[in-house]
Design a protein around this nucleic acid. Structure first.
Length: 290
DNA sequence: CAGACGTGGTA
DNA sequence: TTACCAAGTCT
């Protein structure tokens, strides 16, 4: 489906793509999968060093599967949302047990793995296996909202109309569709950014509905909310950091000192245990899962 | 389906 | 300084 956007954006990508290691010719599907999980809600610059450490230490799913899940949580460092590390570890075991150690290439098989949703399944199938899928992440949703819909931001929740639009724009040839998918995403990441878009550098400015309308300001409901300080999330982060930074099991008082609100602290610790991020020992100490 | 789930950089 | 934002998923 030849769109007026396709060629300019593909050309722009050829000239401006970042040189990211998970895009290198020698990157494996496993490396791509790791990058996609790490990049969920996390900026590229923070992912880079952790991705290198992971792929060097665990070059295959089987290598990670052979370790206790706590090692994945520890090596996750401060990327945030550590349940992702747990799920990546679970995925490594599932891939080893059920897929002969090879990352599956089908969207359905990928989707069945823990921590992999609609976006990540499409991204891995497209980036690692050069298949034709609509890869709809926050960048692409924003680009299409501006380019086609003429809105500064996409709706809060993804709509069927957005999926239909993205599929309609997809080039028919699978390898070209895969290049298109990463190219639109890159345009959103580098040019068509959320806060201050660099429209002067945009290859499709002349075809941008939002620009043609004079870049009207977003008028919908407030975009965010959600303070972080004082939340259970912050408390969980503090608790887990103690365990990550310790060599072995820690005594309870070592956890108590990082959060003064005792009821909240106990609740957060219980939740971490329920999530499988922390193991309580019989002797009263706590540790990352072994 | 709205809210939970980490962390750090930037305007 | 506060608030938003960064390649989402799960319940």
């Amino acid at each position: 489906m030849n769109s007026t956007y396709t060629d300019p954006i593909l050309d722009w990508y050829a000239a401006n793509a970042r040189d990211l290691p998970w895009r290198a010719p020698d990157a494996t599907p496993w490396g791509v999968l790791i990058s996609e999980i790490m990049l969920q809600q996390t900026p590229v610059v923070r992912v880079l060093p952790v991705w290198r450490a992971w792929t060097e230490r665990w070059p295959t799913p089987a290598a990670l599967a052979a370790e206790p899940s706590g090692e994945a949580v520890r090596a996750w460092g401060r990327l945030g949302y550590p349940r992702r590390a747990l799920r990546l570890h679970e995925s490594a075991r599932a891939i080893t047990d059920r897929h002969g150690g090879e990352v599956p290439s089908s969207h359905a098989d990928l989707l069945a793995l823990p921590g992999i949703g609609s976006y990540t399944a499409a991204a891995v199938a497209s980036f690692a296996f050069r298949q034709r899928h609509a890869v709809l992440d926050t960048n692409v949703r924003r680009v299409l909202a501006r380019l086609v819909s003429g809105e500064e931001y996409p709706p809060k929740a993804q709509t069927k109309a957005e999926v239909a639009l993205a599929e309609g724009l997809l080039p028919l040839d699978p390898p070209t569709a895969a290049r298109w998918a990463v190219a639109v995403m890159e345009l959103g990441a580098l040019v068509c950014t959320a806060r201050t878009p660099r429209c002067v550098d945009c290859p499709v400015l002349a075809q941008c509905t939002w620009h043609l309308k004079g870049r009207p300001a977003y008028d919908g409901p407030p975009r965010r909310g959600q303070t972080y300080t004082g939340t259970d999330r912050q408390c969980r982060g503090r608790l887990l950091a103690v365990l990550r930074d310790a060599d072995g099991p820690v005594e309870k008082p070592a956890l108590d000192v990082v959060w003064s609100d005792a009821p909240q602290r106990e609740r957060a610790l219980d939740a971490l245990i329920a999530d499988g991020l922390v193991d309580p020992l019989d002797d009263g100490r706590y540790t990352l899962p072994t």
